[in-house]
Design a protein around this nucleic acid. Sequence first.
DNA 1: ACGTCATGCGGACCACGGTCCGCTTAACCC
DNA 2: GGGTTAAGCGGACCGTGGTCCGCATGACGT
Lengths: 185, 185
Amino acid sequence: MRADAARNRTRLLEAAARLVAERGPECLTMEAVASAASVGKGTVFRRFGDRTGLIMALLDRSERIYQESFLHGPPPLGPGAPPVRRLEAFGPATLRHLDAHRALLLSAEPEACRRLDLAPRYVRVTHVTSLLREADTGGDAELLAEALVGYLDVALLHHLTRRRGMSLDRLEAGWHDLVARVTRT
Amino acid sequence: MRADAARNRTRLLEAAARLVAERGPECLTMEAVASAASVGKGTVFRRFGDRTGLIMALLDRSERIYQESFLHGPPPLGPGAPPVRRLEAFGPATLRHLDAHRALLLSAEPEACRRLDLAPRYVRVTHVTSLLREADTGGDAELLAEALVGYLDVALLHHLTRRRGMSLDRLEAGWHDLVARVTRT
DNA sequence: ACGTCATGCGGACCACGGTCCGCTTAACCC
DNA sequence: GGGTTAAGCGGACCGTGGTCCGCATGACGT
């Protein structure tokens, strides 16, 4: 990547972060980001592909930290604890991660919801699948993983907490219950 | 509703159905529907609210039949069979319903995925919740229902069957397994 | 039949995401 | 440094969903 391109990339990310912080995610339009970074609109698209790509880039750091926590972090989330224990911890960790970035994630969703092959979800499904296999609970681990990860969804989180008024605690308890039922032999 | 309005409504639905049949769901633009029905664009929006609304209206008949089948139809899907049995039957019925309208539903998704309060999903969640309560399996029936219904999702169905090459049979088997695990006391 | 008026209509208009292509310029080699 | 070239850039352009508002017209009471 050329030096000016790299510079523009960071300028765009900074401008985008500023826009979100100051005016909310709904004001994060591609044109606004471009002009806030004093750059052409085309440049934004070349760098990030589309709006969802830009948002993913914005969340990249946080996403890495989150992934690190369950892939290589301390137990019970990370390796070291028994798989079911890790699975139990995975739900709350994910729900909190989603909740922290709810507004931004929801503003990306319209595009993203078709893209179930999007990296973050793929990582989660893979992780849960391997924990299920490790726990040796039988059944179709891949499909069970999809079902479990389906519960850990921003839109669902939003719907249940905001629209239906459920607490995050209740969702976490629901996750524990779900994991217990799915994994018990 | 005024007579001309009703007439326009049916003309629009016919035009929309024709468009989908002849040129595919991606050609179902609001403007195309309007001009195919020789009507102003504004009329389409007034009648159906937005693109998702139009698509829901197109699928309304089929959706009613589907709903009827599990609300008042013959067992094991409808009332008469034991709740867990009904739950088992509900998965395949829903998956096949979604599969039948996959293209159209997916073309609506971008909008619809935020709208988890959309009628069809709400009906499903309510139904599954009541079956779970009836089966008396304990736990948070509402949340378990959300998790189960999350498995019955067009985008997921599409992803698993098209992109990941799983068969519908496998998804149905997965549903049975999932129901068994969630409901066993 | 006629007057009134809410209902409905049309299409100009806007915002936004995304594409395209001719021009610019950093990078690299000699 | 100068020449060459691919990478990068900008912003005009397009299609689409959605809004708006002045005009038309069907419904209804008298």
